[in-house]
Design a protein around this nucleic acid. Structure first.
Length: 160
DNA sequence: CGGATTTGACCAGCGC
DNA sequence: GCGCTGGTCAAATCCG
């Protein structure tokens, strides 16, 4: 969990969340985005809810292994508007890192995509965003202007 | 006033 | 078994 294995999806139909930079100078001019495809670590879906704890032995909870995608972004701001609506549900201090890690969940009903945002302490200009799961609904974005698309193309072409 | 955020508690997994 | 660590919950708080 120190550094994510960064490997580049070559021919994979990688469906990436779109990064759009809300403030125009949010990312430095030589912006880079590294895409890391974390190998499917089997995340136990979630701890059995501690409220309805009727039969703890019943839920053996098939180990759903959700895909996790790590995005390393060189940015000064740590919240990138990727077009989805996120609700923050937690924040923890990570060891060997003086910056906390934030946990977000997609607010769309029925869509439980999670993401966590973490800033590297070795280089505080790098923000690691880890997506977990895939959205099952279209992006709700108020406006999709050319400028954003061009920005994305700039970003994604920087490592090809 | 309603939805989002904050923040400490809680819980499970893992290493020792 | 115990303590540390990461992930989540939920009540309180904030903010539009």
């Amino acid at each position: 969990m120190e550094n994510y294995p960064i490997l580049f999806p070559s021919s994979t139909s990688f469906h990436s969340p779109r990064l759009s930079l809300s403030p125009p100078d949010a990312i430095s001019s030589s912006s880079q985005v590294f895409l890391g495809l974390q190998d499917e670590s089997n995340v136990p879906a979630s701890h059995a809810s501690r409220e309805n704890e009727a039969n703890p032995s019943k839920n053996k909870e098939t180990k759903v292994r959700k895909p996790r995608y790590a995005f390393r972004t060189r940015s000064r701001i740590d919240i990138l508007d990727d077009g989805y609506r996120w609700r923050k549900y937690g924040q923890k201090a990570v060891k060997n890192n003086r910056f906390p890690r934030s946990y977000y969940r997609c607010t769309h009903e029925g869509c439980d995509v999670k993401k966590q945002v973490q800033r590297l302490s070795v280089d505080e200009s790098i923000v690691v965003t880890t997506y977990e799961g895939v959205h099952s609904h279209p992006v709700e974005k108020p406006r999709d202007n050319f400028e954003d698309i061009l920005n994305q193309m700039q970003i994604y072409s920087s490592f090809q």
